[in-house]
Amino acid sequence: MGENNHADEPIIICRDVNKWFGNFHVLKDINLEVQPQEVVVIIGPSGSGKSTFIRCINRLEEHQEGQIIVDDIELSHDVRNIAAIRSEIGMVFQQFNLFPHLTVLENITLAPRYVRRQARRNSDELALQLLDRVGIPEQARKYPGQLSGGQQQRVAIARALAMQPKIMLFDEPTSALDPEMIKEVLDVMQELAQSGMTMLVVSHEMGFAREVADRVVLFDEGRIVEIGTPDHFFENPQHERTKLFLSQIL
């Protein structure tokens, strides 16, 4: 479990973030600060804007108002800023989004080789280490289509880690998985959290939130309803909406 280093500057700062899809106001005045090595789990009903929010952090979505500052870089239209921030942030998707035409190894080494310009030997070595870390070193030469969902998602995590990011974003990483494969992915994520990675996780896995998260955030209708430590959040929720949400899913 990540230790909170409150002495540090927050690594992610969101101030009054607003976003619209056309006329639809999807994020409303979001304010959130994430400390280095902190694990934040975002929960909430579907359509509440939680995925949109974390996609704003590496600018897969653009926010229209407010400020998002990641590792002292403010997200703006400046292409260089976006590139710099994206290389700091790893992202794992619900649908894995592995590149089906590349082998597992090539999936992992692609970005280090062409974005970081690492030598092939170094990136291969790193990739094999990462595959070992996520527990599937023997799958390096296979294609994603030959792997199970859980294995694919672990490759996706390894792929994100290969860029040696400071922050990892997880967008419902276990939602597309069969029940017996969820655990293998959560175990990898837990190990990652223990190693001190800053993580923002959108998830419906309450067990994971309770065990691994430093803080839990509830989103509803585009705004943050409640933030708290897992103990506080699950045992003693303050807000009526939180109580209702928890009563529905627990």
Partner: peptide
């Protein structure tokens, strides 16, 4: 699928690399 392009962008690949690879 759009997810492929998003994944590539999230890895920091620029549009040229994304298109090419």
């Amino acid at each position: 699928p759009h997810g492929q392009i998003e994944a590539a962008r999230a890895l920091g690949l620029n549009p040229f690399l994304t298109t090419t690879f």
